[in-house]
């Protein structure tokens, strides 16, 4: 391959690499929307959670949209475990919610059924290099 062609190929690759770096950083930059049902910092995490509807409906199947970032601005891409309990009665839901990551830091969780009126505690567990982080949120149905 002539040098001119080789240097052009190297140049193009370098441009593509730089472009992908810019795009990746743009995608990975993790920010929380305002006005969610839950919007706060917990340990090293920034968390936003939005239920599919408000007010929540007793006995209905609900889903949530969660955005989870590290305080550094990086998106969290690990596993989320979730449950919800009624602290006064010491029982939880009859269902085990599951989460799917739709894009880095963005998750859809479903399988939430709150079958009794009263105080509920939503519990999300995240796993980072620094260990597990439990996020709890109380609400009344």
């Amino acid at each position: 391959m002539p040098w001119t062609q080789l240097s052009r190929a190297v140049f193009l690759r370098a441009v593509l690499w730089l472009l992908s770096l810019v795009v990746t950083n743009t995608v990975m930059a993790c920010t929380l929307p305002a006005g969610s049902d839950i919007n706060r910092q917990e340990g090293e995490f920034l968390i936003s959670v939005q239920f599919d509807k408000q007010p929540l409906e007793l006995g209905a199947l609900h889903s949530i949209q969660a955005i989870i970032c590290y305080a550094s601005g990086q998106a969290y891409t690990g596993e989320i475990k979730a449950d919800a309990i009624m602290p006064a009665h010491n029982h939880g839901m009859n269902y085990q919610p599951s989460f799917t990551m739709t894009s880095p830091g963005h998750y859809t969780g479903t399988g939430f059924v709150f079958h009794m009126p009263g105080l509920w505690r939503l519990r999300l567990t995240l796993q980072s290099d620094n260990g597990k982080q439990l996020i709890e949120h109380d609400f009344v149905l």
Binding site: L61, H91, N94, Y95, Q96, P97, S98, T110, G111, V113
Partner: peptide, 13 residues
Amino acid sequence: ALRTSHLQLLHRN
């Protein structure tokens, strides 16, 4: 079927 797929079997059932 989401409700069915997320059902969990618990001792208290």
